[in-house]
Amino acid sequence: MNLTNLVVIAAFAGLMVGFYFLNLRREGRRLRDIPSYYRLRGSVEVAVEDGTRIHVAIGRGDILSPHGAAALVGLSMLQEIAMVASESDHPPLATAGDGLLGILAQDTLRASYNALNLSASYEQSLGRVTGLTPFSYGAGVMPLIFDEAVSTNLLIGSFGTEAALITSAGERGQSRTLAGTDNIPGQAILYAAAHEPLIGEEMYAGGAYLGEKPMHVASLHAQDTIRWIAIGLIVLFALGGLVQGLL
């Protein structure tokens, strides 16, 4: 029995629930500013008014691996955006580099259309698989940005070096790109290539900033608490090692 895993997960879940009830009593969300998300909200509103399209790239993270969490965040943000922009002339378009993610993207979009009573307007081609290898995925997304009147690209998922191909297409298509990935080299690339890069755990905060659901906000507070505990333990162990070395 792996008790450490159980304790960490139970503590995390407990903190989430605790912060959920605590936040119900407090006013305001008490979140730090991530300007990229405020600009994304602005871009979504402009896209709806302009009749341009929002492209949500979920990447190619295998849902059966830890990279799947990044893809789940992408799907969550796709849902938030679809709920706002699906009624426009050019509804949001989702691309994935994995068959399973392609199905989940279609399902997420269909659920949003159903929730908005727009089932008749839903098209299967709004969720697309553009390629199944990193470069074929990137190469498949590039023409789509030009052809589909995309004004905002949202890259949320697991991306590697191929992300630079997508952001460069966005740059040439004069569309704004907000991007986050769980991949370290991918983050370095996106820091230079995207208009609005999301670093580290910022990507996982999308639901709280876009949807403002109480449990999303609570999970961010739980993340912050555990992070400070981890920082404290790292410093403590480092100092312990130092003292032990000196004695």
Binding site: G200, G207, Q223
Partner: peptide
């Protein structure tokens, strides 16, 4: 990179727990 990975790991746990609690339902549910 280790600092970023700690953040990513915490984000991954939070996302997983939200799915387990049914807060995030990325399957059209």
């Amino acid at each position: 990179a280790r600092g970023i990975l700690i953040g990513v790991a915490l984000g991954t746990i939070a996302t997983g727990l939200r799915v387990l609690m049914g807060i995030d339902r990325p399957y059209g549910g």
